[in-house]
Design a protein around this nucleic acid. Structure first.
Lengths: 264, 264
DNA sequence: GATTGTGAAGCCCTTCACAGCA
DNA sequence: TGCTGTGAAGGGCTTCACAATC
């Protein structure tokens, strides 16, 4: 998951659990598809299947928004689309700026999923003077010197950071100082922000690493047993075993009390 | 968060909680940075700060891997880097294919964070014949007709889908049939896969929608009270109030029992 | 009869707080 | 003395299962 940090655990906002909020866009997408096919109503079971969750969870989620369904019938598609959109704040226009127009920033600039959800790319910003004025996805890139001016003039409150990791924090600081209060961070760094600012991060390599973990697990399972994730070779062995390893007293180690690989 | 689905809740693998696995890459990055600065040891407090988590959580996480620290001292940086890498399966080489070489696919192809973590882009695949042979990020694009051959020849087990939503499921099916067992999905669709295949998704517009939700909440808080998220205008009002609304018996509605906006 | 809405139970994760160890 | 490793407590989310409702 990409998760923000500053999330006022107090107040509980209006009581909608964060996990539920994170699924609302999923439901919304499924409902939009149904709406386009002019399906009038949908049951929790059907909608849950379309959104890839189970129906009890979906009903519980919707119960936080209010009682929008009809027992024995299901949910009115159009009405739910509206309610969820409103709950998510998508009935208003959100100008966003994208900072860092490299490959990724350019891809984001051209991403159709933004505009269709009420997000308007208000500006593309890059530090490279050679980029200034060049149109990307139909929008001229502006120089980062003008960052503050752009933010305040357009009333931008959401910023997307797609810069190299090295400059992400300073870009973040400038965005926040200029009035941005929500940040979507693609740079592989931990950003620190003051209270009241939300950060969500998307880290491509982290997702792959998580997949690799499970992939390795699978490979181990089917192979039966082999003492460790990569037994024979000892590739690029640990550079520095810690002091503790020599004692060998009570440590459980990686494969201590449980066979590393289940023998079937 | 981007979360996979098929996750065998049984067997519990080797007992490392999913939440912990998701943080290991974070720790690894922080440790790598320390390693490059030749820092020999680090305390849970310091490392936690660098990774943006709290220290109790970090210690608990590490405790699932084994006792790799030294009381009164901290953790050996190099040793931890190795242990976490091994746990994540990064000590081996993971060939990946990227399917769908549009803006996003191209950006992914050139993303440096992959190679540095042991992920090797084995092939770029696109359905457009005009793309075939064209080098992207130094790698020639191959036609999707050859997908199965590429997967099996290179022993690819991880696939990245960056195609339009409409074809994502069929691409997914072909990848799985060809032997891929982990998929990172950037297409805004729910993929269904057989047991044993892991899917993680990254959805750019969902992240923004979650930010918008909190952003709206903030705007409401500072504005005092105003009856609803966007009061005056009634922009694009609900197309179809559901049957239930007329009865008006027990429904709580969106702003029923709690003021939509806290009055200070 | 069908399907929602929801208390209650269970599970997982986080946090606390301190014993154990270097 | 300082910091890790971990039992125990606490909190949030998911799942169950069924009463309420159309």
């Amino acid at each position: 998951m990409a998760t923000g940090r500053t999330h006022r655990p107090a107040t509980r906002s209006r009581g909608i659990p964060e996990a539920t909020v994170a699924r609302l866009p999923l439901y919304l997408r499924a409902l939009t598809a149904l709406s386009e096919r002019s399906v009038p109503t949908v049951s929790s079971e059907e909608l849950a299947a379309a959104a890839g969750v189970n129906s009890a969870k979906l009903r519980k989620d919707f119960s936080y928004l209010g009682s929008y369904g009809t027992r024995g019938v299901g949910y009115d598609v159009e009405y739910l689309v509206y309610q969820i959109s409103r709950e998510l704040g998508l009935t208003q226009d959100w100008p966003v700026v994208i900072v860092g127009i490299g490959n990724l920033g350019a891809a984001l600039a051209g991403y159709g999923g933004f505009a269709s959800r009420g997000f308007r790319v208000a500006a593309l910003i890059d530090a490279d003077p050679a980029m200034t004025g060049k149109p990307v996805a139909g929008i001229p890139v502006q120089h980062s010197d003008d960052l503050e001016k752009i933010i305040s003039e357009d009333g931008v409150s959401i910023g997307v950071i797609a810069t190299p990791a090295g400059v992400a924090q300073q870009v973040c600081d400038r965005l926040v100082a200029a009035g941005v209060t929500s940040i979507l961070n693609f740079a592989p760094t931990v950003l620190s922000v003051p209270d009241g600012v939300d950060v969500r991060k998307v880290d491509l390599s982290i997702e792959l690493q998580i997949l690799a973990f499970h992939e390795q697990r699978k490979a181990g399972e089917e192979a039966g047993a082999e003492s460790g994730p990569e037994a024979g070779t000892e590739t690029g062995a640990p550079t520095a075993p810690p002091a503790a390893r020599t004692g060998g007293s009570s440590r459980k180690g990686p494969d201590g009390d449980v066979p590393a690989v289940m023998p079937a």
